[in-house]
Amino acid sequence: MSDNILVLGVGNVLLADEGAGVRAVEQLQHRYAFPPQVELIDGGTMGLDLLGYLDDKTHLFIVDAILSTQPPGSVVIEKLLDPPAYFRQKISPHQIGLSELLAVAAMQDCLPPSITLFGIVPRDLSTGIEMSPEVNVAVGQVVLAVVKELGLMGVEVGAASR
């Protein structure tokens, strides 16, 4: 079976850096052209609504703001070996939706076998739609990291046609 990849950006774009994951997916969609085996979704702060998008996926990339002791604007990329358990620790501010989603996916046997977290450490979680400068830079780094990871998997990513 060939790889089927879902790039899922999550977060609340009304709360400044909280929306970093969604902003990263927007940039990916805007700047690149992906083959049909790659699906990009702006998941917002949704939970169970996203279940259908996990079907038949071999890889899930979660792009999200994460709570961490590292400085704001840091990027954390990690393979999640036991995702539902992992997400029960508080790492993501809207982990309730995401952890339930993954737990339910596991119950329904549709949890993608490989899950990678592309995390961005936020600085500003106040009301507003502008991200802080360091998180803006981090979003750009994550966009490149996602494209690089796809390249290592043999997925050809092109430039968006204008």
Binding site: G44, L50, G52, V104, M107, Q108
Partner: peptide
């Protein structure tokens, strides 16, 4: 468990009419 399947089905109606994205 069955409800998990059917909530997906009905959500597809929203997705088709709402142009196929979660929002």
């Amino acid at each position: 468990f069955q409800a998990l399947e059917y909530q997906r089905q009905i959500n597809k109606v929203v997705a088709i009419l709402g142009s196929k994205t979660p929002h």
